[in-house]
Structure formats: structure tokens, C-alpha cells
Design a protein around this nucleic acid. Sequence first.
DNA 1: TTGATTATTCAAGTCAATTGAATTAAACTC
DNA 2: GAGTTTAATTCAATTGACTTGAATAATCAA
Lengths: 388, 388
Amino acid sequence: MKQTHTTSGANAERSRAHNRRVVMGKIHSAHEIGRAEIARASGLTTQTVSNIIAELETEGYLREAGRRVQGRGLPAVQYSINASGGYALGIEVRPTALFAAILDLGGTNVATWRLPLSKATPDETLCTLEHLMLDVKRTVQPERIIGAGIAMPGPFGRTGLSGSAHDLPGWEDKDLTKLFSEALELPVQIENDANAAAMAERVTGVAKGLSTYAYLYFGTGLGLGLVSQGQLIAGAFGNAGEIGQLPVNLDGTIAQLESVASRSSIQRHMNNAGIDVSEMDTLDTLHAAQSPALSSWTEQAAKALGQAVAIIENLFDPQAVILGGAMPSGLLKDITSKIPLNVASVSHRPDAPHDRVILGQCGRLTATNGAASLVLNRVYTPVFGPAA
Amino acid sequence: MKQTHTTSGANAERSRAHNRRVVMGKIHSAHEIGRAEIARASGLTTQTVSNIIAELETEGYLREAGRRVQGRGLPAVQYSINASGGYALGIEVRPTALFAAILDLGGTNVATWRLPLSKATPDETLCTLEHLMLDVKRTVQPERIIGAGIAMPGPFGRTGLSGSAHDLPGWEDKDLTKLFSEALELPVQIENDANAAAMAERVTGVAKGLSTYAYLYFGTGLGLGLVSQGQLIAGAFGNAGEIGQLPVNLDGTIAQLESVASRSSIQRHMNNAGIDVSEMDTLDTLHAAQSPALSSWTEQAAKALGQAVAIIENLFDPQAVILGGAMPSGLLKDITSKIPLNVASVSHRPDAPHDRVILGQCGRLTATNGAASLVLNRVYTPVFGPAA
DNA sequence: TTGATTATTCAAGTCAATTGAATTAAACTC
DNA sequence: GAGTTTAATTCAATTGACTTGAATAATCAA
């Protein structure tokens, strides 16, 4: 993930790109907004905003949304995102399947694929992707596809995946960015699934108004995505957020967070109680029926997550911690409400406009949609090259 | 700490400011470097770099450092930072004293003050500062002072300090930035002591080549500074890095990190052994004499810190974790070497160019010098306005 | 109806980047 | 050691994008 950035300098062209993002970002978060207001909020002149909006409109990214009368003076022409003006492709690579989704500029899912993989080796995956692309190009206008985001389970080495813990063999020492961008013929961004999922909530979900938050992702294990000022914190090597091994204290016993709060931990727990939950729907049913075995799991998980949340709040001071991932939403909601919060924390702000722990709303395909959201976030959030 | 940024847009002027920082940053980290090389490293043209360097040189921030023959072609004129071209003021407010330091552009300490405070109320502090400023202006040319950094123990509320844990009463609900910038008549930056200390290592210490790292700070308690891509991670309300309450597991007993690894924990531990260590020098002597009581503390502290390091590495994936603060350096070195590292971590990189845990080198006044380093870091690291 | 207010556009001006050709000084080649 | 190659730097012209200030348009208030 680490690379030498040789483009830290600014020039007119890069200023324009930056300002286009600023404008798109304001429109995205305000939903409908006029030029003058964007100018005030961004520090640009109305003239500049006008020019940029004209450009964005002819390119199809924006559309007029009537005038709004708001007191005296000429009513401002409102602009909003033209959802069909661009599309982002999201790819999630899992050990047994490849998920894909297309989101439009507004963040709405317009297509979803699930392609089985036997081993998820690079060859098989890339080959499957080439077939997928044919389909993708039939679904939306190819020239309207802005880019692709790829979500894979980490951890990442300097290139490719590394370490002994990940479940995708054969990807070590590969230049992932090169591999995918060549196969897809699109600019790509690669993140682990938790990070991608975190972005989904920012672009379309409950984190839309937030710029600094943490996201706990229930995948096979448990992942953490950290977003600071609208950008993912990747860490030096792209592996920030490995929270699974966090030690938690359950009634005097130390356990790893992931072994108590994850999908695989439910399966283990329920199997011990003689119940098979290999199907996700079973879980949903059990939850609706208030299964005692499931609620004893929930209790443990919530307790463990409470400790994780306390640590996250202390170390990162986020606006909120969001919970999401591939779990029945009723169950997730239940967990969310049961997480104990430390009243002595700096995050305890009685006047806060929202809860400290929030339920994510992006559903089971969060990571796939999140992969696409990585692309959308780049449209809406200005970035500048990092320090050397 | 949170505020509405109305200047996220880019223009020619802000581009220039950005590029000046890029150029200063390259020169700072390379020590001596020619224009063409800066151009290559930054993506700017040599012409632009030439213009900026000419500007910076006439302003006194740079100076020529001879030509370097490096093979064929015209030998490049080398430039380096002109240390006396600018000064940064650092202020550290503690409950019983105000520390101040001036660093030159090269990061060298040119003056230090220690002014006793009886209660460190805003009134007393600001009054003391006004007297200090008279002295400061006699020490260096007033117009060469770039700005001031302020280090205070957190946590911060939306304005001022808040919470029950901090030791500076009377600062609640104050607009710190306004208060200090008006008293000093300088642009100011305010951070907690751990964050300031973290910056000291980046500007002058062992973190000079690092852009993403964590810093564990021994103050009265224990603080954490997180630096990502050359910038401090502040969190949503400026309180990121509150690591003191982290639970650690010592032989089955759960303790708070701060109660085992901090200056006050040493005092408690040694008092229990019947030894008084209210003077820091005593500690140094005891360490040199290999006091058994002290080494039993060190062992516990290192064990606890090992757990904290593991969590930091997993959550943040830094290039390194640096240890520093107001402790005898021999003792710190000892702790550093004794911290157990998890071999299974993603941070275990046998080919890394440096250790995973590094001893800081900025000495006892790290936080004060660090406050000044906040200012210097802004000179050397380009920033752009954060997302809305 | 008139004046105040706010949004927007028009036209000119400015800033700071880029581009391409020219100059300088060293190293390599024969 | 004369000529060629290479690299850094400067000179002069150009361009892109933002700003400025004046003009115009549409609404509210009196």
C-alpha cells in the first residue's frame, strides 16, 4: 500500500480538481444547495463556483433542482447530484465467491452480482472479473464508470496480501493495484473489507454527516475501519484496524474479541448448544424467536464490544462508533443497544446530536457497496498528497 | 477543537503556500538538496521550484550550501534550512509552572524558561505569558517568530478543557485559541502534551524520517500521540490518544495502564518499598544503582506497555512506536528494551529499517519543545483543509 | 412603486503554474 | 584536449484558474 508520492505539489489543474471535489462534496452533503451558499461554505468566489458548476453540469454530474425562495433577494438556483451521471464499481473478493455491485453517483445500488469461486486464486479471480466486466458494460454506459473499488480481507504486505491469518492464498507478493487496474481497465482502490464497509456508511448510510468515526465490521471475523476527516486511516502499510485480536475481559477470563464477537463465534456458541446456524436466515429466525442460546451470545458479545468501544473512543475520539456488516439487522440492533458505555469517557457528551454507538444501515452487502463507495468518496472528498 | 472550515477551496495563493511547504519539507528532510531533485520529488517543474526557492531565500528561510558534483552535468546548487531564519515559540502549561522554549527553524533549542505558577488559572497564566513575551522579544527578533504552540494536559471540550480528570481548573468553557493568540499576538496551535511531544520527535528527533507513527508520552500520567502522514490525528474533539485508562492484564489482575506505567505509578511503587523518589534525579541514581524495587516496577511497566503497543500496532499499523517524556533516559531506554513484542503481529516486519519500538531522543522538555515543533511541522508539512 | 437585498453573470485582471528554448558546467569519448 | 553528452538552471512566453468590480435579475419590504 505504501508508495512514493511524487505529486505532492499543487498547480492550477490540481486546484481545479480539488475545488470540483469541494463543490461536489457540499452538494452531496446538502442534497440541494445553491452556488452562493457553496461559495460561502468553501471560501471560493461565487464566480469560481459558477464556472465549476457549469462544467460539472455539462459533464452530467449535476442537475438543476429549481429555485428556492429563502427570503429577500434573487432566489438561488438549487443544484443536486445527478445520480445517473456516473457509476462506481465495487468488487468484494471472498474465499468462495466474488461479489460485485454498481452504485450510481447518488449511492443507490443499481446492480449486484454474486459469482462463485472455487479457490479465489489470482488467476481464477481475474478471469471471473473479465467476464463480469462484459456484463457490467452492458448494464451501464462504460464511459460513465468512474472507477472501481476492491475489498479484500487483509492484512496487506507491501504488495499483495501477507501474514498467516488471511484466507486468500496465492495473493502474496502480487501488485494488487496493477493487477486489478489492468484487468478492469479502470482506476482502482483497494482496501480491506472493514475499511470499505466504513465508507459505505459515509457515502450512503448513517455516517453521511460524520467526518470522523469508527466502524466495527462483522465479517467472518471482526474488523475496524477508522475514518478521520472524511478519509480512511490506512496506517503505514494499509493494515490499520486489526481489532480482532484485542484482548477482552469476560468475568475474569481473557478472550480475543473476535472469538466472542463475530459470525464464526456465533456458530461455535450455537453449536455448543446443539443448534446449527450455518445459514444466516436461521440466525434471523432464532433472533425473532428470542432463542436463549442466542441471547446469551449477544450478552457476551455486547460486553466484549463495550470494552472495544471504550478503547476506540479513548484512542480515536470519534464522533460515533458505527456497527455493521454481514449479520441479521435485528440481531445487530440488539447488540448495539446492549453495548455498555462508559460514562466517564471523553466521548460522553450529553449534548451530542446522535448516539455514541450507532447501527449501520447498509445491510449485508456493506463491504461490496463499500468498495464502490471508496470511489464515490473520492468524488466527494478533497484529498491532497500526504507528506513525504 | 471542532470548527467549521470555510477555507477548503484552493486558489493560486493557497497553492503557493502549499508548494512552499512542500519545498521546505523536502529540504528539511533531505538536509541538503538541489532544486532539480526537489522538482522530481514533488512533481513540480524546476522553474517553479526555482521561483519558490528564490522567494524563500530572500525571506531568509533558506541558504545556499555549495554545489554538489554528482556525476555528469552541471553540479546542483544545494540548499539547506537557514536555522536563524525563523523561530517557533513553545509553551507548556502545567499546574505548577509554565515552561517555554524557543526553537529555531532547524529545531535547535535557543532558549528555555521555567516560570512558577501558583494555580495556573487563566488569569495568572496569561499574565505570566505577557511578561514572558517581553523576554522572548529580547531573545530573538520579534518579526522572526513564526507562531506559538501550546501544550496543555487534555482532555479538551468543544472549547477549553473539560472532564473531571484534568488538572487545570478554571479553563473550562474558554476559547483557548482566542485567549492565547490575543495574549501572544501570534498564531497559535493548541494540543495536549502527548501530541506536542510526538511532534518534537518528528521535527528534531528519531521520527524525522517517519510519517506514520505512535508516541507514548510519560507525563504525570501516560499519553499517546498518533501521527498519520505527518499530521496529528486529533479525533473529532481533539481528544484522541487518551490511553491512560487502557486495561492491562498483569498476572491475572486487570489494571489501568496509567496506574502501572507512569511517573506517579513509580512514586507509588517506590513509596511502598519505603523509598522516596519525589526528585527525578533520585530516580536516575536508583536506576544507575540497579535498585531492585525500581527494576520490579520496570518489569511490570514493560509488560503493561507491551500490551498497549500490541493494541496500538493492531489498530493503527504505525511504522514505529516511540517512547519518550519526562523520565530519566536511562530508565526509558531500559523500559524500551524490555517491552515484549508480539511476533504474530502485522507489525512484525523482519526487513524493517528500524525497530518497532524506539526510544525518543528529545529529553525531558519534549512537550515544551514539542509545542514549538507544532509550529515547525506546519512549515514543513503541507496541509489542506479537511472534509466538511 | 421604490429601495434594499441577494444571486448570478460579464469582462478584465492577476497569480502562479507550465512549456520550450537557451545557457552553463561538469563528465565522458576518442 | 577538442568535441559530445548529460544535467541543472534560467529566460521568455503561454496558459489555466481564481479574483475583482461592475452590471443585471429577481424577490421582499415599506
